[in-house]
Design a binder for these strands. Structure first.
Length: 147
DNA sequence: GCAAGTAATAATT
DNA sequence: AATTATTACTTGC
């Protein structure tokens, strides 16, 4: 069973999807609400605390994208280690993994279905801000919020 | 020196 | 074989 719920937040509509155990995805749009669940309520309340600058970390079960490769998983693990308010460059992540896959990091981040909870907005380019699947405006606001 | 253009790099679909 | 949310190097101003 898939649960889905959308709410109007500080950044506009956000839709979160989950199954019985964990969060599956987060996207910036108004979606179709199906069933709600304890988990979704918790996710939204943590999210609102985060927007109100009362929360810096999330305590939620997250599920990886459908097909996770070893590489993607290590990238995600590194991203989740980034502390609140800090940013890291694509290159630095590659170095942490003893790899030179600068571009593949970007690809992995783009594959990420759960922005904010997996803080891919804290990953920026060395000279440019980088990209964001659901719009750069959102990425900037998130960084501004944590600053 | 600085700005813009280009090749190179690794992993996924 | 093409694509990617990059980087480092080269050239022209």
């Amino acid at each position: 069973m898939i649960y889905s719920k959308s709410e109007m937040t500080h950044l506009g509509w956000i839709e979160i999807k989950a199954n019985e155990n964990s969060i599956i995805s987060l996207s910036f749009k108004k979606g179709y609400d199906t069933l709600s669940s304890q988990l979704l309520d918790k996710a939204f309340s943590e999210l609102n605390e985060y927007f109100a600058r009362k929360r810096e970390t999330f305590d939620l079960p997250l599920s990886y994208p459908q097909k996770v490769t070893t590489f993607q998983k290590s990238v995600i693990e590194e991203i989740k280690k980034i502390p609140y308010g800090e940013t890291i460059s694509y290159k630095e992540i590659a170095e942490k993994l003893n790899s030179k896959a600068y571009r593949a990091i970007g690809t992995a981040c783009g594959k990420n279905q759960i922005p904010i909870f997996i803080p891919c907005h804290r990953v920026v380019g060395k000279n440019n801000i980088g990209g964001f699947r659901d719009g750069l405006a959102i990425k900037r606001k998130l960084l501004e919020l944590e600053h």
